[in-house]
Design a protein around this nucleic acid. Sequence first.
RNA 1: CGGGGCGUAGCUCAGGACGGUUAGAGCGCGCGGUUUGGGACCGCGAGGCCGGCGGUUCAAGUCCGCCCGCCCCGACCA
Length: 477
Amino acid sequence: MAKKITPRSKDYSRWYTDVIQRAELADYSPVKGCMVVRPYGYALWENIRDGLDRRFKATGHVNAYFPLFIPMSFLQKEAEHVEGFSPELAVVTYGGGKKLEEPLVVRPTSETIIGHMYAQWIQSYRDLPILINQWANVVRWEMRTRLFLRTTEFLWQEGHTAHATYEEAQEETLRMLNVYADFAENDAAIPVIKGRKSESEKFAGADTSYTIEAMMGDKRALQAGTSHNLGQNFAKAFDIKYLDRNNELQYCWTTSWGVSWRILGAVIMVHGDDQGLILPPKLAPFQVVIVPIWRNEDEKAQVLKATEKVKATLAGVRVKVDDREEYSPGWKFNEWEMRGVPLRIEIGPRDVAQDQVVLARRDVAGREGKSVAPMMALAQRVPQMLTTIQTDMLDRARQYQKANTFQPATYEELKTAVVNGFALAYWCGDAECEDKVKDETKATIRCIPLDQGGVGPGRCVVCGKEATERAVFARAY
RNA sequence: CGGGGCGUAGCUCAGGACGGUUAGAGCGCGCGGUUUGGGACCGCGAGGCCGGCGGUUCAAGUCCGCCCGCCCCGACCA
């Protein structure tokens, strides 16, 4: 435990893995590319899950569960889909000691098997829309993995909907993109850019993919969630049809959308500092940690009594009392700061005598983040401070993103911009220009923002041809 | 899959070029005591197939070969 966290400036990726392991969010598994999520990390994931799930329910979705194994032939029904996913499939060829007649794919995503079921469940326009989400694990055989950001097996949710018209499907696609953005900003305190993916970056099998992109602490981009309008591609591949009001057979329009535990990596990288994690109050497993301080049995009894009293006044707040005797208060301060608890309450003999406590904000370092509050005021003050911390964290992240986003007009400027952050620049739409940037700068088009900022047409930053839209170029995870 | 690095105590590592009794340190862990407002200290103690297999040798943690695993950097991805 004495091991120090590598400073971000020295080695950002080391910092990232150090923080995860030292904060006990996750650990490496005996299986390459896989990850063990520890209780503290899982509690964080549960809060993410709950925040999203609540929003899914509020927009009319229901949860269900589809199987882990998918017949190989299903994947092959949609040409683009199979092409996109086949390199990263895990395939089961033996079961019960016998070679299987048809290999089973461990789902990399569930469009195919869900499409197969939808084809059976949907007969009429009256059956539509179908709005189902599932929380599941999926497997994608990745060459290089990274805790939370890219693991062979990962937890996520995948929403799959079927609609009667293109318009409804498109509306759903954007609705869920907005749900993701709302969650990212309001719960995770991560500012995101909503946008459309370029042809080369879109989901295998989608007509159009949308994304929320966020800037990490090292100014690289991370795709934090995606929402796809699948058009009729899967409907045609899986024969998802319905009879419309005129008794005519129509193919459905489907969507899918997903957020994985990768977003937990974003929380770490957007907010963390050299001390470790900084968790937004809405997601933190413990929003408040109380560290009691005493010197002798007399003080101990008084302080613990006051601690219980304080805890009781904080109904509705997730409070951890750290009354372990084998660690000193100073040790605990460092420990809980490293683990990102948003607010610390210190209660010692001096505080008990004066009916007060010391409050320390995790997001404001040192003395500046410390304040004293009367015990009487805590029931109000603590929730208030948690709200302030939550909004301050979003503001800080937003400022950081803004300060590191550039608007290059020339290719030379673009080259500089993408090593220093995001580049918002005109793009003509040609894959050639996109590829050139990728080859020469390692930056990719993260998205074409939905909000173009009210600017008119301009010149492609690469080729100079007329361009109607601006794209965000950045190096990405 | 290419390039680089590393496998010795739970963790971080020394030892290794030059083979030689019982393999070390710090941290962590257990017990006892003193401590406790920003990572306290003392004493005692437990803990090792030195990644695996094979070879050289009277003798291998150390030399040689093969294999395995992990981490970091590149080509694909939520």
